[in-house]
Structure formats: structure tokens, C-alpha cells
Amino acid sequence: MSNYKIVFTGPVGAGKTTAISSLSDEAPLLTDKLASDMTKNRKKSTTVAMDYGTIQLADGELIQLYGTPGQERFDFMWQILTKGGIGLVLLLDNSRDNPFQDLDFFLEAFKGFIAETTVVIGVTQFDVSNKPTIEEYRIALRERELNAPVFEVDARERKDVSLLIQSLLYTLDPVINE
């Protein structure tokens, strides 16, 4: 059986677990634990191992959706999770102090995987903070020699997450068509 996966990453509270839940056919496997450190300030529970969901294709094949734990102390798992990945979905929380610092951190952490595949960026929590704007993200990406899709995303909205994944697929191959 093939082992294709789409990897979701981003800082604590960016909406990885919610995004996977929005897209997964089955109830996702969550490995949340009550937050006990600085994470507690942002959310009650946080992912300590990984989130896992699936999309079942028409021929029965499963596409696995993996969410990395957001805390940096789990970064040893990130390289393992990306093996066999189709691409990376980076979710950024716009309400954090410095989302561009998060952007740099995750682009650097997944540099090799992005170079082999591609990355798309979803910015969440726009209702809490509308700065930086999407235009400012575009400029920031351009400065980093990236021209990746960057969309405003509500991780609870299946449509938003779906559009983000579709842009990932088209970035890999613009010729494909449903």
C-alpha cells in the first residue's frame, strides 16, 4: 500500500488539528494533552505527538494527513513525518507576536522537504488580528525568494482548507484537472 501524505505544520495554536479535522474523512486521531507550560497561555490542550487524519480516494487509496506538534521540543519528529510527503501546509497564527519569525523558523526547519516538494501557507486568526496583511506576507515571501500561495484561512472551514490543498496540488502540476 502506498504511503502518501500531506504534512501540516506551524506554531502552537495555528489551527493544524482543526484543519486536519475539517478535511479528514474519518474522525482524526489526536494526541492532545493538557497544556502545562507557556502553551497554556494560548490554548487548553496541545498536540504532543502528531495529529493524523485520512482522505480516502475513489479507488480506495488513503492520503494521510499528518500534523506536526507545534512545540519546538518535538522537532525531532518533523523529519520523520515528512518522509513520503506530497507537500507542506504551513499554518501561521496572525495573532502571535511575530508571525514572520514563525514563517522563517518553519521555512528553515522544512527547507529540504520544501525544496523537494512545495509549500502553501494559510494564515489563521485574521479575525483576531488583521496585521500583517496578506500583501505583507506576499512581500515577505518574495524577499525569501518564494512565490508560494498564501491565503487567509479559517481552519474550521473545509472550503478554505480544501482551496489551500488544491493550490498545493496545482503548484506541483498546473496541468492536472478534475
Binding site: Y4, I55, Q56, L57, A58, D59, E61, I63, I86, S162, I165, Q166, L169, L172, D173, V175, I176, N177, E178
Partner: peptide, 13 residues
């Protein structure tokens, strides 16, 4: 991987 990508796209849409 266009075959696979197309099938994922079909599923999403």
C-alpha cells in the same frame, strides 16, 4: 505524480 494529484483533486472538489 499527476495521476495521484488528479485523484486527490477529484476527491476535494
Amino acid at each position: 505524480k499527476s495521476g495521484l494529484l488528479t485523484r486527490i483533486l477529484e476527491k476535494l472538489t
